[in-house]
């Protein structure tokens, strides 16, 4: 038996190295094909241009609109970007790449770790691109570097938590298309039914109730406070609590369907 096994390189790397290799695998297409990178960055750039400039023209107050809207649009863009986790998982499962990984003597968790690592990095890219575009259209950070950093970290934490939900849906979904459909059904009410785009004044009672409960409202409000100053209040803690709650629910669910998939 030993002579048989010696033909194969013995895996000496752990789950983390394997995860890093698989994260590299997810990121390298961005380098292979610059078009993909452009596509990744165009989404935040367009969304921010569209929202900030359109509403700026409508209100006649470009700077004020940018200051209010940018954190909201950034949150929206980031949340939509969590889709990629589930979509890529669904794609890997659908086209057999996943099976290849499973037939290798590697840590069972490596493909999932690699996926989330890569998506966290692209999320950082998305958030950075959003802030830079914001700067171009007149948004200015009014707070300290530490607060800015905290704001970006909060977005990353929240989307990290949400990407487990995305991963769970992706693992459950029968196809990439159905994954997209399900994710949109969840994300639309979350993002647009929040204070990300409009203040919770002058809205009907039921919507106001939903906006108050909606974690995205708290995330947007936190980011707004951390980037432009103003009262942070309880928003930060509520957002963090939501992030933990979402992760607490969907991390086990995702891991469960993942382990069922990889058995």
């Amino acid at each position: 038996m030993t002579s048989l096994a010696s033909h194969r390189a013995r895996p000496r790397s752990g789950a983390l190295i394997q995860g890093l290799t698989l994260a590299w695998r997810s990121l390298v297409p961005l380098r292979n094909e610059p078009g993909r990178l452009v596509q990744l960055l165009l989404q935040p750039i367009f969304m921010i241009m569209l929202f900030v400039c359109l509403f700026g023209v409508m209100t006649g107050n470009q700077t004020g609109t940018a200051q209010f809207l940018l954190p909201g649009v950034l949150v929206q863009v980031a949340l939509v970007a969590t889709n990629t986790t589930g979509m890529n998982l669904a794609e890997d499962i659908g086209n057999g790449v996943f099976d290849r990984f499973r037939s290798l003597p590697i840590a069972r968790s490596a493909p999932l770790i690699g996926r989330i690592l890569a998506d966290t990095l692209t999320m950082l890219l998305t958030v950075t691109a959003s802030l830079l575009t914001g700067f171009v259209v007149g948004f200015r950070v009014r707070t300290s570097l530490a607060e800015t950093f905290a704001g970006v970290t909060l977005v990353l934490l929240f989307t990290f938590a949400l990407s487990w939900a995305s991963a769970w849906i992706g693992l459950k979904a029968r196809s990439v298309a159905s994954m997209q459909g399900m994710a949109t059904a969840v994300l639309l009410p979350l993002t647009f039914g929040s204070t990300a785009f409009i203040p919770a004044t002058n809205v009907p009672g039921w919507l106001r109730w939903w906006m108050d409960v909606n974690p995205v409202s708290h995330l947007a409000a936190s980011l707004r406070a951390l980037l432009t100053g103003g009262p942070l209040g309880a928003h930060l803690w509520i957002t963090l609590a939501w992030a933990i709650a979402i992760a607490a629910v969907f991390f086990p669910l995702a891991v469960h369907s993942y382990t069922r998939r990889i058995r």
């Binding site: 048989l4 096994a5 194969r8 390189a9 013995r10 895996p11 000496r12 790397s13 190295i17 394997q18 290799t21 698989l22 590299w24 695998r25 390298v28 297409p29 292979n32 094909e33 086209n95 057999g96 790449v97 099976d99 290849r100 990984f101 037939s103 290798l104 003597p105 590697i106 490596a110």
Partner: peptide, 30 residues
Amino acid sequence: ELIGLTGQYASVDENLTGTQNLMMIGRLLG
């Protein structure tokens, strides 16, 4: 550790080059 598997539907990563596909597996195997 003993097997190689070739799937019914070629399970290579289409977004990677041939070299990258092969290197990825080599790296995963340590």
